[in-house]
Design a protein around this nucleic acid. Structure first.
Lengths: 257, 257
DNA sequence: CGAGGCATTGATCTCAGTCAACCAGCGTGG
DNA sequence: CCACGCTGGTTGACTGAGATCAATGCCTCG
């Protein structure tokens, strides 16, 4: 049932992409609130100009809508402008494996690079806006401008670094450790966006977190309760308040087993 | 004790790198046995020529030797020419987290891209040879030649795709599923190199596998025994023979929970 | 108002982590 | 040359964590 709906939306979206002229929301990076997150540091106004020639378009996405899907041709990379997204892969057993959560200023879709088609499906977790960066045009721009070259390098480097730090989390054998590491990571990312590192909304379901961390849904729920009982945090549905950040850190980080 | 030795070797290696002229083993990709694995398909002889201008050097590495280490400046990417390597990251609790195993024709070191320093340590698991590709010179070559551009794209794309498929494995909650997926992946990689997909040597220790898969060493050992008891494979130390590839696949893949 | 999705919680059982013993292979040094 | 210790691997016994199955509550949406 849900998959049918998602599929439907995807088809709709693909159509929307081809007739993209209907939404002529061409934007300039210079005016973007989260450009400091997308772009490498130290870019001057001059460096930004060639990027504007890429004619970046933005697209509004509703919660649940897919942004690109497994198998779609790789044409764009997608920067989250506002909102939160998840990326997932269909496992051979038919269930979906969540591979990441993406906040404003983070980029998705680079995994399509090698095969020319996307290997992941990206879905919006809340209403938001994504920025479509035409990959070929971006690469073409690198020839002329060092700024664009830095951008490509920055984006790919970040992606690979992110992937490896995820592997470190998934290398932990304890569910509590994994959830703590996950929450601390979310906390940091909120902080670097100017939001409170101690209080925020979880945009993803327990099931999504469970899939991402390689444990079962119920375990996530129980571990939240356990953290709450131990006084590390207060959780009510998807609202989270970390009351003892240090405690949470030491519960995970300082474990010297 | 062992770390001291490793450290010693690293220092030695760094010194070797600076006075690299001592090993003037400049190589051409065209003569490389595994070039079809490193390089994107459809490259002509003409495409290879500019790559040769990169003056690729090779370095012999002994088992246990480190190739690059966390914190080293990012200057090269490293293609495995022969042998097998592992990459690992130091976790905050002091233990090492293995992030990957790399066979001939696979590339390591791209994670250093964003920060300009390597975030992982690469270690040879057996005697072998790695190919040093000077990154800046490679990028410079992309301006002139489309072949080099394809190469960069190919290498990065592969890396990101690999990372995501690892995440899918780590998303499995069952230790048996994870090990089966891991072995099947090794099997495929052997097959694509012309070796038997059913019989090969594991180059890494049980501890390395455990770290990589996010389970404990003893669990790996037990799961091997269990697989053997169930007739999927025969294992003796690091020698592995898969006697029932289909059984192993279905034990992992066709699980329709 | 009812249905369905999401989350929590309980009971139970299995699996994997823990601690420890043991073995095989190997290099070292007496 | 053999004894020794070290490393890496296997196995056993036990325990605790997490998966499984199931019931219930909450909230939203139609």
């Amino acid at each position: 049932m849900t998959t049918a709906v998602t599929l439907d939306r995807t088809v709709h979206l693909l159509h929307e992409e081809t007739s993209r002229c209907a939404t002529p929301a061409t934007r300039r990076c210079a005016t973007c609130r989260v450009s400091t997150l997308c772009l490498p540091g130290g870019l001057s106004e001059d460096d930004l100009q060639p990027l504007d020639s890429l004619l970046l378009t933005t697209r509004r996405v509703a919660a649940g809508q897919s942004i690109f899907a497994e198998g779609d041709p790789f044409r764009f990379i997608y920067a989250v402008r506002s909102g939160t997204c998840k990326t997932a892969m269909l496992r051979s057993d038919g269930r979906e494996q969540v591979t990441g959560f993406h906040m404003a200023g983070e980029v998705m879709g680079l995994e399509g690079l090698a095969h020319g088609t996307h290997r992941l499906t990206a879905t919006a977790l809340e209403d938001g806006e994504v920025c479509l960066i035409p990959y070929e045009r971006l690469v073409a721009a690198t020839v002329a401008t060092p700024g664009a070259k830095d951008l490509v390098r920055h984006l790919m480097g970040q992606e690979m670094e992110r992937d490896h730090s995820i592997m470190v989390v998934l290398g932990l054998t304890d569910a509590g450790d994994r959830l703590a590491a996950f929450l601390l990571n979310l906390s940091e990312r909120h902080a670097s966006r100017g939001y409170s590192p101690r209080e925020f909304h979880l945009r993803m379901s327990r099931g999504d977190i469970a899939s991402f961390l390689g444990v079962k849904l119920e375990t996530i729920s129980r571990t939240f309760s356990s953290f709450q009982k131990r006084g590390f945090l207060e959780v009510s549905g998807r609202h989270l308040r970390i009351t003892d950040l240090e405690g949470l850190k030491s519960a995970y980080g300082l474990r010297l087993r």
